[in-house]
Design a protein around this nucleic acid. Structure first.
Length: 272
DNA sequence: CTGTTCTCCTGTGGGC
DNA sequence: TGCCCACAGGAGAACA
């Protein structure tokens, strides 16, 4: 469940847990991207969830004594499970809230590229977060900023916008989508993108992400007891995954190329 | 510093 | 039906 909209929807889905205290922590498999702190149980029991924030694709669950930093990697998902829900394969962590009526934050991640980390310092100072670029939906992310960033970059524009130090939250799907909407070929060198195109690109990134959040938000009522996935595949992509299919604008076949070892899709006719 | 390649891991789908 | 291979939505680490 990787792109920013899915992370934001996950964050929203967890909000019913705010103000509940943790009564138990179960770690079935601690070997995520980084080992899960075995003392998590000791640290978290009795702690009340204060707030849920997000930075890039990291979910920040704040407690009185520190913060859980959660990343879903490529295949992670979180649901709120009821007590009687069966344990499925790759249900690695349960964080159980409430003493009487249990609400379980259940972390599932088949590929285990995600992470669940504890910090008792300001999470924004954590080494994984402190050097991240601006949030795509914030006013800090504008055409002036992006143009300045791209000026020195010789990598492809697609790789540039997927770089978390440039802007956070633009994943492989939405990078292709945003470049299609702004009519820029993904393989173009970043520094060759014009101010006008950067302007369009910033708008396209914001629109793509905003729309996906709105769309996914409508499926949030299904969050309880449903392990992820809904909302994601339902999205209709204009170019991503549409190799050889007709471009929605000009009917020419969509091209697929590899950039930075990731699949990239574009229209050879509409994107220059 | 920049850019490139490698890496973690399981699941899935296509070809035979 | 089974087997093998390519590939999958992330992104830090290691290296040139």
């Amino acid at each position: 469940m990787p792109e920013l909209p899915e992370v934001e929807i996950t964050r929203l889905g967890l909000e019913p847990l705010i103000n509940y205290k943790i009564s138990e922590v179960v770690i079935r498999n601690s070997s995520l991207r980084w080992p899960v702190n075995k003392s998590l149980q000791k640290i978290l029991i009795g702690m009340k969830l204060i707030s849920l924030k997000r930075r890039g694709k990291y979910i920040l669950a704040e407690f009185p004594n520190g913060t859980l930093i959660i990343h879903l990697g490529m295949s992670g998902n979180i649901c709120i499970a009821s007590k009687d829900r069966e344990i499925k394969k790759h249900d690695h962590i349960d964080i159980i809230f409430g003493n009487v009526e249990h609400k379980i934050l259940r972390y599932n991640d088949p590929r285990r590229f995600g992470c669940v980390l504890w910090t008792d310092e300001n999470p924004l100072d954590h080494k994984l977060l402190k050097n991240l670029g601006p949030e795509p939906l914030s006013s800090d992310f504008d055409a002036d900023y992006l143009f300045q960033k791209l000026r020195k970059k010789t990598v492809s524009i697609k790789n540039a916008i997927m770089n978390g130090h440039v802007v956070v939250g633009v994943g492989n799907i939405y990078a292709s989508e945003a470049l299609f909407h702004s009519k820029i070929r993904p393989q173009r060198e970043a520094y060759k993108v014009t101010t006008n195109e950067v302007n369009n690109l910033v708008t396209a990134i914001k629109d793509t992400i905003e729309k996906a959040i709105l769309k996914g938000g409508s499926s949030i009522k299904n969050f309880f007891d449903i392990n992820g996935k809904n909302g994601y595949f339902q999205n209709e992509h204009q170019v991503y995954g549409r190799k050889d299919k007709p471009c929605i604008l000009c009917k020419n076949p969509i091209q697929q190329i590899t950039l930075g070892q990731r699949s990239s899709f574009y229209c050879n006719c509409c994107q220059k």
